[in-house]
Design a protein around this nucleic acid. Structure first.
Length: 467
DNA sequence: GTCCAGATTT
DNA sequence: AAATCTGGAC
């Protein structure tokens, strides 16, 4: 998914990261389970998976370095969404608060009462926006979109236009072949479909030039309410992290997993029969009726896109390469100041009987995990990771984020590595950034997995036990 | 992202 | 020979 709906410029490191980048590989061999290999590549393109010879400092105790292309030995089921409803709820709740924030003129609330013609008009609008968004970021597209709709309010207006008129409006967007396909698509829709874009993704993709799997899914879910998935670069990034996928990002196996996950998100729920009277009185059913596939897809895209407001684990920047192992072990204690915590006991201090578990937190263990290299554009960053166990407190400590201390923790937490990420929004609990320990890699180091809030307690307790 | 041409598989 | 996959171009 190269050129596409670009993430907000300069927002964060993640926008430049290659998902599944294998610049370094640490995967704890995880004995059991099936062996899942992302698409059997023909010849051994070993060079592509450059190995990292663990430099200086220390060796990672649990990391295993592979000399061959690593195979992932775990059940493929970890890459499935196990409670789509739960995730959907959190996602839509998040989206409800941001969907209108960027003033996208093509984004309108889904109206299930619309008739065929009105839906087709919506499809036209979404279509134009989607094609423009494939190559340009939202802020830039808006004025182009507005001008376009003024000149060609309906698909019939577009169909009647000349290439020159279209190109004139497209000027500055580049990729003119898209503009000409837009025109060709409109003409075909008028000539063969009574001026209405096909109302289902399959037909749309098969018959309208310039519309592929992604666009068909986006347009049909948003305009027609069809339960079809979308997977663009943003959703790819989101789902990769959510499911802790660490594999060649473009391989068929990886794509299959991600499309499957995207499909699970919009899978229609066999709704329980509710009378309109019940619906009116039950907030539950009201929410249920609000779960339109188009909203889910847009929410996924939106969450995967800017990427600002992402969080990383507490990090100390610019640590000298020569820092000794002993000196490094002292860093985590200083990092506690980045957390919202009750009083802190020194690492080595013996806990006095009088000191309540709840009033004090204390680091009880610090272990080097190994180095993780994060490469994005021209920057190459080494994370010297340490596994720190913190004991005490009633709940997982939250990250102190400038000015937002104490605000509400959203149900969805999404984090990213990279020190230059804009840290905004509300503080996240540390455990919301939890990443399966055996999956620490360049692809997800410092990257939190989106977690549904009500599942974090369990994770927290499990981590404390060190199991 | 989509399209297309060449390679591969059934 | 049709269906599917893959890598590069726009």
């Amino acid at each position: 998914m190269p050129a596409k709906r670009k993430p907000q410029a300069g927002s964060s490191t993640a926008s430049k990261r290659k998902l599944g980048d294998k610049s370094s590989d640490f995967e704890e061999s995880d004995s059991q389970a099936s062996s899942y290999e992302p698409s059997p590549k023909k010849k051994a393109k070993k060079s592509k998976f450059r190995q990292k010879s663990s430099p200086d400092a220390f060796e990672s105790p649990s990391a295993v370095q592979h000399t061959e292309k690593s195979k992932i030995s775990h059940s493929a089921s970890i890459h499935l969404i196990h409670s789509p409803l739960e995730v959907q709820t959190a996602l839509l709740q998040w989206y409800a608060g941001v969907h209108a924030s960027r003033g996208m003129p093509w984004r309108k609330p889904y109206n299930p009462l619309l008739g065929p013609d009105e839906r087709a008009q919506r499809a036209y609008e979404v279509w134009v926006s989607e094609i423009m968004l494939q190559q340009t970021q939202v802020a830039t597209v808006i004025p182009y979109y507005t001008r376009w709709m003024e000149k060609f309010p309906t698909i019939r207006d577009l169909a009647a236009a000349t290439v020159d008129e279209v190109n004139a409006l497209w000027k500055g967007l580049g990729y003119y072949s898209r503009a000409s396909r837009l025109l060709a698509g409109a003409q075909k829709a008028v000539a063969k479909y009574q001026g209405r874009l096909p109302d289902n993704a399959k037909d749309m993709e098969a018959n309208i030039p310039g519309i592929g799997r992604y666009s068909a899914g986006a347009i049909c879910s948003i305009a027609y309410g069809e339960h079809v998935p979308v997977l663009d670069g943003n959703v790819h990034r989101l789902m990769s992290r959510f499911l802790a996928v660490h594999a060649p990002p473009k391989s068929k196996a990886t794509l299959d997993i991600l499309w499957g996950a995207a499909a699970a998100m919009v899978k229609p729920k066999k709704h329980i029969k509710v009378s309109s009277a019940q619906r009116a009185s039950s907030p539950e059913s009201t929410l249920e009726s609000t779960r339109y596939p188009g909203d889910i897809n847009q929410a996924l895209i939106e969450l995967g896109r800017l990427l600002a407001g992402l969080y990383e684990f507490p990090t100390s920047s610019d640590v000298a390469k020569t820092t000794s192992r002993t000196a490094q072990a002292k860093i985590p204690h200083a990092l506690l100041t980045q957390l919202v915590v009750p009083s802190i006991l020194p690492y080595d201090a013996k806990r006095k009987e009088t000191e309540s578990q709840h009033e004090c937190i204390q680091i009880t263990s610090i272990k080097p995990v190994g180095d993780v290299i994060h490469v994005f554009s021209h920057i190459r960053k080494t994370y010297r990771t340490q596994w720190v166990i913190i004991r005490g407190g009633e709940t997982p400590p939250k990250l102190k984020i400038g000015g937002f201390e104490g605000s509400t923790v959203p149900e969805l937490s999404f984090t990213d590595g990279g020190g230059e990420d804009g840290l905004s929004a509300s503080p996240r609990p540390l455990d919301a950034m939890w990443v399966p320990f055996n999956k620490v890699s360049s692809a997800n180091m410092g990257t939190g997995v989106v977690k549904v809030w009500n599942s974090t307690k369990e994770l927290w307790e499990r981590d404390i036990d060190g199991s």
